[in-house]
Each structure stands twice: as structure tokens, then as C-alpha cells.
Nucleic acid binder design. Sequence first.
DNA 1: TAAAGTCTGTGATAAAAGTCACTAATCACA
DNA 2: TGTGATTAGTGACTTTTATCACAGACTTTA
Lengths: 216, 216
Amino acid sequence: MKLDIQTLQGHFGNLFEANLLQELSQVGNYMEVEEGFTLMRSGGYIRSIPILLNGSVKILRADSEGREALLYYLGGLDSCAMSLTCCLDQRPSEITAIADEKTKLISIPVEKIDEWISKYSTWKQFVFSTYQKRFDDLLGAIDQIAFHKLDERLLGLLNRKSKQCGCNVFNITHEELGQELATSREVVSRLLKQLERLGRVKLSRNKIELLNTDKV
Amino acid sequence: MKLDIQTLQGHFGNLFEANLLQELSQVGNYMEVEEGFTLMRSGGYIRSIPILLNGSVKILRADSEGREALLYYLGGLDSCAMSLTCCLDQRPSEITAIADEKTKLISIPVEKIDEWISKYSTWKQFVFSTYQKRFDDLLGAIDQIAFHKLDERLLGLLNRKSKQCGCNVFNITHEELGQELATSREVVSRLLKQLERLGRVKLSRNKIELLNTDKV
DNA sequence: TAAAGTCTGTGATAAAAGTCACTAATCACA
DNA sequence: TGTGATTAGTGACTTTTATCACAGACTTTA
């Protein structure tokens, strides 16, 4: 499905120049995906790059034994650097992308990426800023994993989720949190219980409420 | 100091087009740095991006408490993605770069980076391939940290060093290895001793010899 | 060559994280 | 409404990593 220029303008405002919006409306494919939808599986091939209009997508790294670690979230007007590098190089994806909530996005065919870089300076800007943001995100992920203990990482994860969705109640299981932190369900359960005793969260089945959002 | 076109051609071969080599020889500053020289300290500002001609540079991430973790190595003809993103954005560096051996490099003033992207397709290619490689490197670093135990990471580090310098004997202290792995000296000593018992390395003061290079 | 500094080895102990096993609570829906 | 599935809580134990403390070996330099 295609989006008209007015709608695109509503989303991209003055991020992109008029001619680019025109082209976007012609070749960009509009999609809506539900929470949990797998946009990209590690090892798969990418033929188009996504730009999120709203919602959020989590980007995970999988190891050979099926474990996964959360790298970062994509939010509004974000795009994925991995899809850029993979597209341009015809390589399989190194990461997994899963919608974290109902998400609207527009996907751009690979051949336009390079073409537009030479053609539109706003697009070039966008591509570079995408690389830059994802680079920073990865460094943030490394900080978490390399320098913080699991309880801090868990709290950090909940805080990021809170920022991402603009709320402080999550419908998520301990199992899922364990996957995102690349640890086991039991460990998450215990740490959550500990955080509950400290008054940082309130737990119920399928639900975690974050209490003191101020402290990281 | 400036390099002449012949010398540059010798290094870059047909990676860059003739006109670009011409400009490179005019604005590129040639430098030689000794092992241990700090090219960039986390938090510092970057005014030029480096391209390695030979040697190698290690890129580290520091946390607020002074601990560090090795992210990856730069080798021949590599450049640094961080310097790209930081330069273009006038932000302080997020990483630390230290020469791992005697290293020759050419550094390009920031204003040329963007200019050349529009002007030379080979430069554009180079910049994108730099982002791509560093992105992959970061993912590799995350794999190591998130999914592997310290003994595997230590062995992996030694193997990477071996590839980097083309040899299997390193003059390095346990303390330094501990820093690169973001752990303590004692832990490294113990793990190395364990690896020695397994016949994977041979230890002496200030020196580690890697024995079975085949297995990761 | 003696003293000071650096590097390594290792015991003892603690903290953090992972694993196994089982129970209890809650939910979905036949 | 009750039966099976999912989710959560927790004890017991192991493994991995961190920390403290100290001794011995080697190097440098006065």
C-alpha cells in the first residue's frame, strides 16, 4: 500500500525535501505490523529498509545456541543500520527485529537507498544519522552488558521500556525479560522479587509496574 | 607531513580514484605513532579522521569508573566509524583509541569527509564500508561479552591478537589483558594458568605464546 | 649487588549468576 | 467447573567471577 504525500509530510515534517517525499510516496510501501511480528530474522535476506512511523521495534542479537540479547529499540522515524549495511552488500542479516508493539512503517526498496544518497542531501543526512544513532545504541548495549550487574541491567531495561512506550506498566513475562537479558527465567524472577522488596517495582502475573522512575 | 601520490597509490592501490588520491596527498597528514600512543581519549574532540596505512590500533570503551573493554582492532586501510560520526556531529569521542604497535596513518581533516562523499563515489563507498565493518566489529564484541565465558573470551582475544600481528607470541602483561577484558589481573592469571595446563598457551614473564591456533 | 619496582602465582573467601527440581498461583477454554 | 497450560516463586546446589592478601620471581637502577 502507498501513502500520499500529505500523510508522509505529516510524519516527516521538514525532515525530507519535497521531491524526496514525492518519491517516497511512489516507491515506499506502507505496512502495519502487530506486536510480536518478526520483521527480520537473523540470517534472512533484506530487500528493503524500514522507517518507523510510530510504534517500536526491538533489535536482538542471537548466538549460535539460540540465546538472544537485546541490543536496542527503534522508535518513531528511526531506521535500522543493519538493514542499510546488509542491503547495500547483499549479506544476510546479523540481527533479529521484532515489533514490540503495534507498529506502522514504510519500507524503501534497496536500490533507492544509494540512489537517493547522491540525489537528496536530506536523505544522505538521514542515512548518516541512522548509522550514528545505531552506533551509539550499540555502545550503550555494550556498556550495559560489560559494566553492569544483572539487577542494574534489569532495572535499566525496564526504564528503557518505560521511555519507549511512555508508560510504567508492562505486560511481559519473566521468561521474555530473561531472553532480552540473555539469562534464565529464574534469575529474572529472583531479581524482580528483590527489586519488589526494595520498592522499585510491583509484580503481578504478566505484569510489571515500575515504581520509582527517577533513579536509573 | 604530506605523502606524494606514488606512495599513496602504493597503499590504496585502486581503492580510490586518481583525483581523490591527488586531494589526499594535498590535505592528508601523514603520521607515525609508537606502540601505546593514545590517538584519541574518550571525551576528547576529533578534528580529523585517521586511515591506517599499516600497524594496528585498538579501540576501547571506558565506563565511568575507569574500567575499559576492548571493542575491536583497526588494521591496514581501516578507518574509525566513531571519528566519522563524531566529526560530522562535533561531538566528543565515545571511545578511546590506542596504537597497539608502531602504526603509520594518514589523517583527513573533517571538512573533507562530507565534501568527498558527494564528489567521489569511491570515497562514499569507503565511508559506508567503514561504518559497516565497525558495526560488524561491535556486534562481534557483543557476542563475546554477552555469550561467552571469560576463558573463551581470553582465548578469543589472544587469537585476534595473533591474527592482527601475524604472530603467536605477545609481549603483554596479565594486567593489560585484564583491562581489555574488563576484569582483574588475578582472574586473567588464573585463566591463563588453566589454559597453559590445557596446552593452549605457554607463559613467561611479559610474554604469552599461543600454541594451538586452529581451535577458537 | 642491593634495593625498589614490576609481574606472576595462588590460597581463602565472597559475591554473582546459572541450573535443577519442585510447588503454587493464575488463566484459558472445553 | 475443572483440566491442562502458562507463569511465577523458591530452595538447594554448582559454576563463574571478583576480591583480598601475600609470597616469590624477575628486572631495573642506583
